[in-house]
Nucleic acid binder design. Structure first.
Lengths: 238, 238
DNA sequence: AATCAAACCTGATAAAAGTCATCTTTTTGT
DNA sequence: ACAAAAAGATGACTTTTATCAGGTTTGATT
């Protein structure tokens, strides 16, 4: 499949305000802009592969990308789902290691690639930017610590409920109460987020639906009763 | 209990070579040194608490400290065990958030405290140091991604075996084949590392012992057959 | 419209692991 | 040295969840 390029100036990117590049000086931003390559990807295409060496940073302009690891038996665990404005592949780049995960497009995406030389140049010349990156990375670490504790001691039911709430917060549509999870996730992908079997997710989702906590709208899920869902997640001690 | 101070110049600290402070200029190192407070802690004392605001960085000189989260039912999950040379509490400091975990002394410890102003001063004046910190943080994130995938899809038996091997690598004594895990962990703490119940750890440990994979030496565990243990951990697909 | 594949769903079953109760051993504090 | 507390161990039982096997529905492609 041929790579389809597109082009948008970083300074005009609608997601700049949500991105870590926000606050960069015009010169620094144009340094990024002048060296980037922007590519359109179709659902199912891979951005990078586990075990390969990073050569730059990806910055999401449109679409959704899942970052996941495969275990020995081929079971997938989704570490993160990147949305517009997010950086992608920065962990391995900054730790100077190989990618430890694979990135695959979930919904048709537009992604800009910034060669590592240019990214590092801006990073090193700009302590305030570096500080923002460090803060974001360390915040992300905190999120992962939370996930670890959750995975260790919560039931699948609790984890599914908690993840639905998290997905609503993170990928909820603007307006209309933000109750629709704006992600066309398969049951299999949802299982890979929660860390369980596909069949278990299917059963629990129909439980939640029967209890009026959620509803299905096409491939998407709407959260009908966030409070009861939070109780299922054991976030509220009732 | 009164706090017992002690003092060692950073430049003479035997763990400097293993620490992120290694490579700092003499001026920067003395800036750290001149503002630090070094305290001796007894087993069971707390260094910091979940929900409080960090005011500086801790740097381990001796002993072992567990960093853990408590869930709603009071079950503990150990995120990390800090050893001499390690930084402690840097995540919340650098993300400018409250501590998300509590730190408690496992083995009598000597820990230096560096006020955040002085740490940030050195960090900002020294791009190479900043880069090393970022690299270390991102490496740690990779370790956590690995743990997440492991927790999601591996059995308790596999996780216990994998963690015993990890503990051997990380806390193994120098010399004598490094096969003795130099950590006096209770069964309960080990369960909090693996993410399971204490009884399950006890049963699995006696299985491993019966199979000649490990041996108990006082409160410590010796790995007798790392290869078979790796097979139990499903790290080797036989 | 027919066909194929993928996704989704359901039921039965088995394995894994948690919980609870009880007992023994070790450690700690006075 | 002794009592009390904590840690370790074991058995019985229950719950949760994975797995397998078989269905149906949906969606894409020709």
């Amino acid at each position: 499949m041929a790579k389809v390029e597109f082009n948008i100036a970083c300074s005009l990117c609608e997601h700049l305000k949500d991105s870590l590049f926000n606050g960069l000086s015009p010169e620094d931003l144009s340094r990024i802009n002048n060296h980037k390559t922007c590519i359109q990807y179709k659902k199912g295409q891979n951005i990078f592969y586990e075990g390969t060496r990073p050569t730059g940073l990806y910055c999401m302009n449109a679409g959704k990308v899942k970052v996941f690891k495969n275990n020995v038996q081929g079971k997938e665990f989704i570490i993160y789902i990147a949305k517009p404005g997010d950086f992608l592949g920065y962990r391995a780049l900054l730790s100077e290691e190989f990618y430890q995960a694979t990135a695959t497009v979930l919904e048709d995406a537009k992604i800009c690639f910034i060669p590592k030389e240019n990214f590092f140049e801006v990073l090193q010349k700009n302590p305030a930017f570096m500080k923002r990156v460090v803060r974001a990375v360390c915040h992300e670490m905190g999120v992962m610590e939370e996930k670890l504790a959750e995975l260790a001691h919560k039931s699948v039911r609790e984890r599914l409920a908690a993840n639905l709430l998290m997905l609503k917060e993170t990928y909820g549509m603007e307006g209309e109460g933000s109750s629709l999870i704006d992600l066309a996730l398969s049951r299999e992908d949802l299982a890979s987020i929660v860390g369980t079997a596909t069949e278990t997710v299917i059963r629990l989702l129909s439980d939640f639906k029967a209890d009026g906590l959620i509803a299905f709208e096409g491939k998407k899920i709407r959260v009908l009763d966030a409070k009861k869902l939070a109780k299922q997640a054991d976030l509220i001690v009732a």
